[in-house]
Design a protein around this nucleic acid. Sequence first.
DNA 1: TAAAATTTAATTGTGCACAATTTATTTTAT
DNA 2: ATAAAATAAATTGTGCACAATTAAATTTTA
Lengths: 145, 145
Amino acid sequence: MENNQLKLENQICFKIYSAEREITKLYRNLLEELDVTYPQYLVLLVLWEEKSVTVKELGQKLFLDSGTLSPMLKRMEGNNLIDRRRSLEDERTVIISLTKKGEDLKNKAQCIPSKLLENLSLDMKELKSLNQTLSSILNRIQQKI
Amino acid sequence: MENNQLKLENQICFKIYSAEREITKLYRNLLEELDVTYPQYLVLLVLWEEKSVTVKELGQKLFLDSGTLSPMLKRMEGNNLIDRRRSLEDERTVIISLTKKGEDLKNKAQCIPSKLLENLSLDMKELKSLNQTLSSILNRIQQKI
DNA sequence: TAAAATTTAATTGTGCACAATTTATTTTAT
DNA sequence: ATAAAATAAATTGTGCACAATTAAATTTTA
């Protein structure tokens, strides 16, 4: 009896795993000029929208915990991209905000989304269906956890 | 002027990045019983198909380099899942094969693919389109590199 | 055939990612 | 008011992931 279920080529999740890493490599090239990693770029995306957020809020938006965020934010602070300060109302929470340098990086980043989509060269139909499918996967999984 | 391109919610790649990690978490639960990580499970999938492969071949199949594979394979050897030996014909190459324990793990793994798909609860149509889109993304990216 | 180039793994160093624990603070329940 | 519970972030420890370098073996080429 064949064992197709356990064949690598039939693993849909292996494709997601591989695609994620290949796409991150594409980002790496584009982000080199900004001198940030892809996860750091995600933090910047949030801050370009929100001005300031707590570590907890960042974690909720990016699905990352403090074990990942704390050292990463420390590195970003070291690179002068963000400021970190304790909230005055609640000394437990840490508020993250952009420095001038982090703020200014937004201009350089404007071209990144379109350049990346160009590299992927998906047509509109594929893009839409991929978007929908991933969203529904994420919704389903997150409900279970 | 709005800046929709840089909004987090519009980042298709963020969804792939998030989905990859959420799916890996689902695997983590299923793989706990086998006492292997997801990347180690991928190595096992290859070996259950092939009996023995070189580190280079593994890297080509999984899109991983020796910097990732060498220490991981050493851990798997330490857990008695695989054997590593230098090829006699070409002393540069290292041949990876399953131990009895690694071989036997295949039985326990039989249920994993179906359990995982159940967790994702995608319908056939979604699964097919996701599969196609990811394959074409992977093809396109890999041609560029 | 000996030197140069190539190939294969391993190593080194950096940066996530996450489970589990710890520390400090705030909230709640007595 | 205070002890217990809950919350937020940091820390610790393990395991990828990858760029860059190194070391050893093989192949190519002059």
